[in-house]
Design a protein around this nucleic acid. Structure first.
Length: 464
RNA sequence: GGGGCUUUAGCCAAGCGGUAAGGCGUGGGACUGCAACUCCCUGAGCACCGGUUCAAAUCCGGUAGGCCCCUCCA
């Protein structure tokens, strides 16, 4: 199994700490608003990693956090809290906002066939863990208290810039004008572990701590939740590329300071989905949610297909015409599979050949486009029986999750009776060359939400 | 200002030194009363320039364009 490791900026052989077991941590959503399809792309990619590894026989232990607290719009002790802002916008409590958008998030995931990780943990449920970690870091000299807040001292981190590939000088020179400096830090790049009330106006979410009532910094939650559920060694940590710096860099610094040794070996980052103007955002341009796509008539799984058609490390530009192409391809693929005959007739000769091809695609840094190609190769192979194709498609779909073999809703006997009757009447009309009647019957069928297909084997109907 | 990634047919896209996968669309044909569906057939020499090599889309250098990051972000 080979995968690209951001830590070393190259494709590497994947070797977990414990043979056969993969401990995987994926940064979850900040639940202050709906997810847009770009956010969702990252979760599709993580889903493919989990399922791909499972397909290869690994026992994947995956954890995801839900950020429901303390996510400042700037990393200092200034700026606004996204959760608080969301709550004010919607006249709800922070907890209500978090609950609502968490549910919406998993709703979207469900529509996209993204498996919910076995362990999902809310940032606000693990305050004790963060406090314990921070206390140890303070005791060991990795953190310091300043103006009531606790900061991580990056000068104590062994190799703070390893993940981002940056160097300190550049960071200092290039800091954006909009960033407000926190003058209580020793080093501008130090980051907050715990903020007390003194700096932020009465947040709804606050807890008692050895340093006063307050709330945790954004980065400590992931380190804490990961440590709590996956222990001191992590195999794969995923997220969007935007998290490389500072979020993941900070996590490494904290976790390694806390554990006293190397923590996570593989860092995988999903590239962004852009729109024609660049990076997709929630505040500018069209806010593309999955529901919006559904409103426009798209099948959510067409979007999944759209994502799988390219590699997770490629920037992808979203446009409706490209999505149209993906939906077209997806629906054709499904109908091709639907037409396969289910007569039990499994030929085993070429199974290994295709299983290996599919496995190669997974092992090649989760090359989903190649996985789809193997799928098309199977469907085109005339030496395979329909049943053999279905068998392979079903196995592949365990990773792809495109509902390729899922049966459409079971036959509605009543509707079927009506439609069969219409088909018979239309065929009679056709035979009599009474095409006006025939076409009006076809319109009638369309009004019922079905379309007629005149195949070589006769006329059948299909839901529109 | 600093750093990184990227550039393959109309579009999406694979390719990882050995002679350009796949999909969508287009056009043509078969089928059809017509249409749709389905099935055949149909296309590029890989941004540009130079280098390394028996051999380069693949490696190296440069030029141009695009995107991203540099404490909000998936």
């Amino acid at each position: 199994m080979k995968l690209y490791n951001t830590l070393h900026r190259q494709v590497e052989e994947f070797i977990p700490h414990e043979t056969g077991i993969v401990k995987m941590y994926t940064c979850g959503p900040t639940v202050y608003h709906f997810a847009h399809v770009g956010n969702l792309r990252t979760y599709i990619f993580e889903d493919i990693i989990e399922k791909g590894l499972t397909y290869l026989g690994y026992d994947v232990k995956r954890v995801m956090n839900i950020t429901d607290v303390g996510h400042m719009t700037s990393d200092g002790d200034t700026g606004e809290d996204k959760m608080q802002k969301g709550a004010e916008r919607e006249h709800k409590t922070v907890y209500e906002v978090a609950k609502f958008y968490t549910d919406e998030f998993f709703n979207d995931c469900n529509k996209l066939n993204i498996k919910k990780p076995a362990i999902v943990s809310k940032a606000s449920d693990n305050i004790d863990v963060y406090i314990e970690m921070i206390e140890k870091m303070l005791a060991d000299g990795y953190a310091y208290i300043s103006n009531g807040n606790v900061y991580f001292d990056i000068s104590k981190a062994s190799d703070y810039y390893q993940l981002s590939g940056k160097n300190p000088e550049d960071l200092l020179i290039g800091v954006r004008d909009t960033v407000e400096e926190d003058k209580f830090k020793k080093n501008p790049a130090d980051f907050g572990l715990w903020f007390t009330l003194s700096k932020f106006e009465n947040p709804e979410m606050k807890w008692d701590s050895p340093w006063g009532v307050g709330y945790p910094g954004w980065h400590i939650e992931c380190s804490g939740i990961s440590a709590k559920y996956l222990g001191e060694y992590l195999d794969i940590h995923c997220g969007g590329v935007d998290n490389i710096f500072p979020h993941h860099s900070n996590e490494i610094a904290q976790s390694e300071a806390y554990f006293g040794h190397k923590w996570c070996n593989y860092w995988c980052h999903g590239e962004h989905l852009n729109d024609k103007s660049g990076k997709m955002s929630k505040s500018s341009g069209e806010f593309l949610t999955l529901s919006l796509l559904e409103t426009k008539g798209y099948n959510p799984l067409s979007y999944r297909y759209f994502c799988l058609n390219s590699h997770y490390r490629n920037q992808l530009v979203f446009s409706f015409s490209t999505l149209d192409g993906a939906e077209n391809a997806y629906l054709k693929l499904k109908s091709k599979i639907r037409s396969l005959k289910k007569t039990p007739d499994l030929h085993e000769e070429k199974l290994d050949f295709y299983f290996n091809n599919f496995k190669d695609a997974i092992e090649n840094d989760f090359n989903t486009a190649s996985m789809l190609t193997v799928l098309y190769d199977v469907l085109k192979d005339e030496s395979l029986t329909d049943f053999t194709k279905l068998f392979l498609v079903e196995k592949f779909d365990a990773v792809l999750s495109l509902d390729l073999i899922k049966d459409e809703e079971e036959l509605n006997v009543e509707v079927d009776g009506i439609l069969q009757d219409l088909i018979v009447r239309r065929n009679i009309a056709k035979k009599d060359k009474n095409f006006i009647v025939a076409d009006s019957i076809r319109d009638e069928v369309n009004k019922l939400g079905y379309k007629l297909l005149d195949t070589r084997e006769g006329t059948i109907y299909e839901k529109m």
